[in-house]
């Protein structure tokens, strides 16, 4: 596994421009990373209004702490780390569990939890199935949802996700493996195995 990639020249130039107080630089930074921030925070908290507020809080903190950015990781990872920590603190304040309780080794009960009474196997048509699958993803615990998003949507390597979340790489891999298996199990046996 590889660690996080260092900052690119573009990252450094953008950070220098913001720190130098160049007009429009911070707005450009926000515009470039607001999608990433939204995905991280939304996957954690799921509430659109809270997500908007937390995204704003994230960028205010980025602006305040940008002088501490050393370029050891990509700016994208650093901002995702700030977003993750803001969303995590929000959930902790509300006493919402961040990850599933350990000890469910076979993942079967979790598969039932993500299915949550919805008959994915009986869902008719691809569109219906996709909707049910999205609902099943939403029912995963916040950390698992976020890890899946960073890996699949943002296409970040496991080492980078580890530095963002502060979790061990083995834990990230385990979350990915188990969550995907749970979602696959929730789909049921309707789908055959392609060659």
């Amino acid at each position: 596994m590889t660690g996080p990639a260092p900052a690119s020249d573009a990252d450094r130039m953008l950070v220098e421009a913001v720190l130098a107080g160049r007009a429009g630089a911070f707005e450009r930074l926000v515009r470039e990373y607001q999608g990433l921030c939204w995905h991280v925070v939304q996957r954690m908290v799921r509430h659109p209004e809270d997500t908007r507020e937390l995204c704003q809080e994230t960028f205010l903190r980025v602006h305040q702490c940008l002088g501490q950015y050393r370029g050891e990781s990509a700016l994208k990872s650093w901002i995702a780390q700030v977003a993750y920590s803001v969303a995590k603190r929000h959930l902790e304040r509300r006493r919402i569990p961040l990850a599933e309780v350990a000890g469910d080794e076979d993942g079967l009960s979790a598969a039932h939890a993500v299915a949550d009474g919805h008959d994915l196997e009986g869902a008719h048509g691809d569109a219906e199935e996709a909707v049910q699958l999205h609902r099943a993803i939403e029912r995963l615990p916040p950390v698992q949802r976020t890890v899946l998003t960073l890996y699949h949507l943002e296409e970040m390597p496991i080492g980078e996700i580890a530095s963002i979340t502060g979790l061990a790489e083995g834990t990230i891999k385990s979350h990915l493996f188990r969550s995907r298996r749970q979602l696959r199990d929730a789909l049921g046996h309707r789908i055959g195995v392609a060659a």
Binding site: L133, T149, R180, A194
Partner: peptide, 16 residues
């Protein structure tokens, strides 16, 4: 190629 079930799961994960 690949497992059809996992393809659907991963397609859903990439479609946020």
């Amino acid at each position: 190629g690949g497992d059809a079930g996992y393809r659907r799961v991963i397609a859903a994960l990439r479609d946020a």
